[in-house]
Amino acid sequence: MTDQQTPPPPPVETTPPVVVQPASDSRLEQLLAEWSAKKPQLDALKAEVDTLSKSIKAETMRAAPEGSPEAIVRSPFLDLPLRVYPRTEWRLDAKAMKAEDPQTYVKWARSSTSWRMESVK
C-alpha cells in the first residue's frame, strides 16, 4: 500500500436478512396495512408540494423588484408569511477528496449507521 491509497475496508459479513412475517392482527400487521395505504398518497403529495414550492419561489422572485435579496410573501391563504431567499451551502466532494488526498479523507471520514426502510423488488 502506497501513501496515496486508502486502506481497504474491513470485510463485511454477508448474513442473509431475516424474513419477518407478522402475525395476523398483530400491531406490526396493522402498521404495515396503514403504511401501505398511505405511502403512495404521501409520495404523490410530496411531489405536488415540491412542484408548488418551486413555482411559488419563481413567481415570488418575478413579483419582487429586480435585485431584491429576499422577499416576504403575505397572503390570506397562509397561516404565516413565507420568506423566499437564496441559501448557499458548501458540501465536501468526498469522492474527489478520497481520490486526491486519501490520507485526509481517512483522517476526517466518519462512519454512521441508520435503519432504512424500502420496498424490496
Score class of each variant (00 low, 15 high):
39 K>L: 12
27 R>S: 10
84 V>E: 01
97 M>I: 04
91 R>V: 07
48 E>W: 04
33 A>H: 05
65 P>Y: 15
48 E>V: 02
109 A>L: 02
77 F>A: 11
56 I>R: 05
15 T>C: 03
27 R>I: 14
42 L>T: 06
17 P>Q: 03
107 K>N: 10
23 A>K: 11
57 K>A: 10
6 T>Q: 07
64 A>G: 04
70 E>I: 04
13 E>N: 09
77 F>E: 09
49 V>M: 09
89 E>H: 07
110 R>S: 12
82 L>T: 05
32 L>P: 03
105 Y>E: 02
89 E>V: 08
12 V>H: 06
35 W>A: 00
62 R>S: 12
114 S>K: 09
58 A>P: 12
91 R>N: 05
60 T>M: 07
16 P>S: 07
101 D>N: 02
112 S>N: 06
103 Q>F: 14
98 K>N: 10
99 A>I: 05
15 T>K: 00
49 V>F: 11
19 V>Q: 02
59 E>L: 09
87 R>T: 12
41 Q>V: 11
98 K>C: 06
104 T>F: 15
70 E>C: 12
60 T>R: 03
24 S>P: 14
93 D>W: 02
27 R>T: 14
44 A>K: 03
34 E>K: 01
106 V>W: 06
66 E>Q: 11
97 M>N: 00
70 E>D: 15
108 W>I: 09
103 Q>N: 12
67 G>A: 08
25 D>K: 08
27 R>K: 07
35 W>G: 00
96 A>K: 02
22 P>V: 08
4 Q>W: 14
120 V>P: 00
8 P>S: 07
30 Q>H: 15
60 T>G: 03
105 Y>K: 00
90 W>T: 00
93 D>Y: 03
87 R>I: 06
12 V>I: 13
80 L>R: 06
34 E>L: 08
76 P>K: 01
71 A>E: 06
4 Q>C: 10
25 D>C: 06
63 A>H: 10
70 E>K: 12
17 P>I: 12
91 R>M: 03
119 S>E: 15
1 M>N: 01
7 P>G: 01
30 Q>E: 15
68 S>Q: 02
39 K>Q: 15
18 V>D: 05
28 L>V: 07
117 M>A: 07
71 A>I: 14
70 E>L: 11
12 V>A: 09
107 K>V: 09
39 K>T: 13
15 T>I: 13
38 K>R: 11
103 Q>G: 11
3 D>R: 03
50 D>I: 00
24 S>V: 15
120 V>T: 04
52 L>W: 13
111 S>Y: 11
5 Q>L: 13
82 L>Y: 09
96 A>G: 00
82 L>K: 00
12 V>P: 01
45 L>W: 13
1 M>F: 10
40 P>L: 04
1 M>K: 01
95 K>I: 08
13 E>R: 01
19 V>S: 04
80 L>Q: 04
104 T>K: 04
63 A>M: 12
108 W>H: 03
73 V>T: 06
43 D>H: 14
74 R>C: 11
76 P>L: 02
80 L>M: 04
75 S>W: 14
6 T>P: 04
2 T>H: 05
94 A>E: 15
105 Y>A: 01
65 P>D: 15
52 L>S: 01
94 A>Q: 10
